[in-house]
Nucleic acid binder design. Structure first.
Lengths: 234, 234
DNA sequence: ACTGACACGTGATCC
DNA sequence: TGGATCACGTGTCAG
């Protein structure tokens, strides 16, 4: 069927040392008895079948890879060069881009393996401060706790007490819980991080107070009725 | 140097019809004059050089592709199978995942080519309702306007009036402007979209009222002092 | 004629 | 051994 197996029938003795290394194992018997080209020996048939399996397996492997490449092509804008290497380069670019946008929103405290957009509040309370990668000199504070009407003003007070300034804020409220990400800069850059410590302590108090209020009923302050309306309750 | 060129020197006449089609063009002259293996003709040298260029070019191409694959490997968790096909499969999965999360947050009204996370408030007011792709039967409402203290309760009232129920909400406040994305389901599925129209009109009122308040000073209601604190002002 | 890109079969290597 | 994966050189086609 294929023309390649006839290649072995030429009786060529390649000048390369290890050119037929993989074959001598299976064709050693036929190599001792000098073969006629007709009435192929069983070993020869065996080798032929093995070669066929090999090439077909390799074809299947190529097909799998190319199928994935074709799938990747559909995930990119169609204006892209259809070239295989350029396609992969574009995939790298897009992946880096998406990873950056999502990882900036990802809380570094939790496992950042699954770089989901985790502005979605989690079940457990959370407070984490880190230095922003994209905005140097800016602290990114991520917190998650039970929502309550005066929470925003408490956060504001904590930032103010730390002599900080919120340059950007994002928050999501769902199921009575709130998750917020704040980008905070400090007014006096010579403070040497004192503001960051105060900010952490202040926000810690906010989160803990929310936990106390939700778990033990009216704890520090009692304000059961005038709670800010929770969107998820309607 | 390579053992493969000796393959041609065997004088094999392949049984395949077009097996040497590409070679007869360049080696046709040497094929007519039966060659001795010494004193290679210039054409032969030329063909050899061409073959060398060819294989080297192919090696460079392979290297480019593999470099990109190696780069992709670094962008994925290290626990991944190092297998090439599995790697690409994982890349496809991740790309789809990231694409979905970001495109879900992308407002469909604007151009959704650049799938950035555009929870960031824009300068101009915006109101857009569409059917959620990921949550069937759910309306995704995107709005952007000037922030004000009673805005959340107004949104809540609008959703309530439309007999809707917020199953998820996200919002970002920056620079005194707020952007919010709501996923709304309607309590009576037999309504046939009437609730969606009411929701649109209600939210439209909310956005327009914010615009009126910010542009023309105290418009409908005057409450200049007890405004909810804006995070971005501290 | 020449370059670039692709699929193919093959030898080598690792479980 | 046998299956799976890889890099390689090559034939072939398009611009």
């Amino acid at each position: 069927m294929y023309s390649i197996p006839s290649y072995y029938e030429l009786g060529s003795c390649s000048s390369s040392g290890n050119f037929l290394q993989g074959v001598v194992l299976s064709s050693s018997r036929t190599a001792t008895t000098n073969m006629g080209n007709s009435s192929c020996s069983t070993a020869e048939k065996k080798a032929e079948a093995a070669s066929k399996n090999h090439s077909e397996a390799e074809r299947r492997r190529r097909k799998r890879i190319n199928n994935h490449l074709a799938t990747l092509r559909t995930l990119l804008p169609k204006t892209i060069k259809t070239d295989k290497a350029s396609l992969l380069a574009e995939v790298v670019r897009r992946l880096r881009e998406l990873k950056k946008t999502t990882s900036e929103f990802a809380a570094n405290g939790t496992n950042s393996e699954t770089s989901q957009s985790n502005l979605f509040p989690t079940e457990c309370d959370e407070l984490n401060l880190c230095h922003s990668e994209t905005e140097p000199g800016t602290v990114k504070a991520t917190l998650c706790c039970e929502d309550r009407p005066e929470l925003i003003s408490e956060i504001t007070a904590a930032v103010k007490a730390a002599e900080g300034k919120v340059i950007r804020a994002e928050m999501a409220t769902v199921g009575g819980r709130i998750k917020s990400i704040l980008w905070v800069q400090f007014v006096s850059p010579t403070g040497g991080g004192g503001g960051e410590g105060r900010l952490r302590r202040g926000l810690k108090g906010v989160v803990n107070r929310a936990a106390a209020l939700s778990s033990t009923g009216p704890g520090l302050q009692a304000l059961p009725d005038n709670k800010r309306a929770r969107l998820s309750q309607y």
